[in-house]
Nucleic acid binder design. Structure first.
Lengths: 372, 372
DNA sequence: CTGTTAGCGCCTTCAC
DNA sequence: GTGAAGGCGCTAACAG
């Protein structure tokens, strides 16, 4: 560890007059004379133009520049450009009571679905609605206290809204209290015990599609490798799948197989239990593609064939699922719709806190490829 | 577009005295009486305690609370807790000339290496150095104008520093000018034409290791599937590899094979060219794991064996490389070191702009697994 | 140890 | 169409 204490290390000596004239910034005295080399603030820009700050402010603003004479407006904008003026958004935020930021909470930055939806949200925010909003992104890894910290930070930074792609049941309390202070929108995951505007996928329908597909293919014994139940996502996939199994006379063996993390590694590890089941299932529904890939890899290593010995279907339609030697059957997640809806909800809620928000649930669709 | 103008829509009528007492917020007049239900600001907290705002500020601060009597300090903190006081960091930032934010520029949020380094940076910032810094994350997808916009946004938000994991040669100008206003640190990718403190991997050494490995295994004809050359990363891997090939008498065929994007799909697509080469190479160095996986998948589909027909080595040691049916040989990227160094650089530069920054280059290491 | 005072840079009412 | 003035919430000199 290099111990560095530079607070007292800056050997700048100023005599009285200069010290007073200096502008304090970040704890150091920075001489800021009128022949400044650094960029001007609005006041300085106004002085350079012999105009009032308010006129400059209006001229530069997006929605109020019409209040300024055309000539003045152009003169201001040109000077701003030339002198390298750059709005201080922290100051603007303080004054406006609006930061033009939204906090986005993600549970896992390595998960392609979250990233895809995240991108969609950002694109949509830029396009429709708010033009130059900055997202503050935080990752929780499904840790409650990390979530609490993140919410606190976002709230302290006065974000205009929060989107959580990482909700889970244990967060109901903290989300509820946060929602009293700022609009909160849920995406991908909904939770029990709190009703917030949400953008969701119909996971139950997704699970049901897979079961129906297995039934149509003539499978009799099937199983599902379920993700953690804290998230509604996986609960619903399981529900939909099991429901149709019962309807169609499919038997689930083993009846319950839940991995702690929905990862490829755990997918691999879970294959042993399936092999040991009796009767042995011939079709496996993995709750996401990562798990599915783990299963495929492990059964390949064991000398089994896919789909002949085991049919496998994943969930999410990730990039890799398409390029595997045995392209993976999977459920396509409505990322575009979910992201777009989430973004629109926050746009509207920011513009109008009383916006009659509504939750939307979008349908996934089954993609049958080589693995089933 | 729903046009919403709530600025004039709130039919609250206040007589003179009350109007003055009212606090303006976001353009709306919000009656804020002393029996408030919303959270207090510092002034209100101070009034409730019969103290001055400055005393409250000190009592609540991390590094100046020792200036306040123990009893007062506790009283203040307790009251803050009870009344739900929450610092307004936008206001604090304006006053302090420091936002406690750093902008982080990433080219591709789906790339595991970037995410891993990003996490490391965040962890390190939280641990060492700055306690509660908020990262502003932006993705460029290697688009120059996206990068420009991002820099502009970060600068307007007055970030205390910027870390770019997405540098490329064409950004030299804009990075240089941005670096005059705020400390900038490069990670993963360095560029020509500008000298900034950086945290890098010795990609050249990585490429060299792979060539040496191929030579040791007795291969004669080899090839590399190179990533895009705009990033120094891939250029250096190619350089190191080719250099050792020449030294060791290995022949590269085809002599040059460059994909436009370093993705699994392009890896698959490139396998055809390798098959058609003559003499046909027996060992392939893929510039990252994504490409390598594409190659493996395609050769498997074609009935070839790995490593018997083709030895393959990737780069990055991604999660998936470990769990494939044929575990992938790969070069382990020093993500921890790179992330940590980048974080420390910015910490130091934020504390002291004149910090004698230095670039560090960390060594990768070859992991030989089943594919080579 | 605590209070007084003065802004940080911007936006917005109000007056002309 | 432009200027004058005040204040968003906080922190940091400077006194006492």
């Amino acid at each position: 560890m290099t111990a560095i204490d530079c607070k007292t290390n800056v050997p700048i000596t100023l005599d009285g007059a200069e010290a007073l004239a200096g502008v304090q910034r970040g704890g150091d005295f920075v001489k800021k004379d009128s022949s400044r080399s650094s960029r001007p603030n609005m006041k300085e820009l106004a002085e350079a133009l012999n105009l009032d700050r308010s006129t400059v402010s209006r001229a530069l603003s997006e929605d109020k520049s019409h209040l300024v004479g055309l000539e003045t407006r152009l003169r201001v904008r040109e000077a701003a450009m030339k002198l390298g003026y750059r709005t201080d958004l922290t100051a603007a935020a303080l004054r406006k009571g609006r930061t033009d930021t939204v906090g986005i909470i993600v549970s896992d930055l390595e998960n392609e679905i979250f990233i895809t939806v995240l991108r969609q949200i950002m694109a949509e925010l830029h396009g429709t609605g708010l033009p130059n909003i900055t997202p503050l992104i935080g990752e929780t890894r499904d840790d409650l206290s990390a979530t609490r910290d993140l919410l606190h930070r976002f709230l302290s930074r006065r974000v205009d809204a929060i989107i959580s792609l990482a909700a889970s049941d244990d967060q109901a309390d903290i989300l509820r209290s946060a929602a009293e202070q700022v609009p909160i929108v849920l995406a991908i995951r909904s939770i029990r015990g709190i009703d917030l505007p949400s953008a969701l996928c119909d996971d139950q329908a997704g699970g049901a599609m897979v079961a129906a597909h297995f039934a149509a293919r003539g499978h009799k014994y099937v199983c599902q490798v379920q993700g953690p139940v804290a998230a509604a996502t996986f609960r619903n996939r399981a529900l939909g799948f099991s429901h149709v199994c019962k309807q169609s006379g499919l038997v689930e063996v083993p009846s319950s197989l839940i991995v702690r993390n929905a990862t490829t590694q755990e997918g691999r590890d879970s294959f042993a239990s399936i092999l040991n089941a009796s009767p042995r299932p011939t079709a496996i529904f993995a709750h996401n593609d990562s798990i599915a890939i783990g299963l495929v890899e492990d059964l390949r290593s064991g000398g089994f064939r896919c789909p002949e010995d085991f049919a496998i279907v994943g969930f999410n339609n990730t990039q890799i699922s398409r390029v595997l030697a045995i392209p993976l059957s999977t459920v396509d997640y409505p990322t575009v719709e979910v992201g777009r809806h989430a973004a629109r909800l926050v746009s509207n809620l920011i513009e109008n806190r009383d916006y009659a928000w509504k939750t939307s649930v979008f349908s996934p669709s089954l993609l049958v490829r080589a693995s089933s």
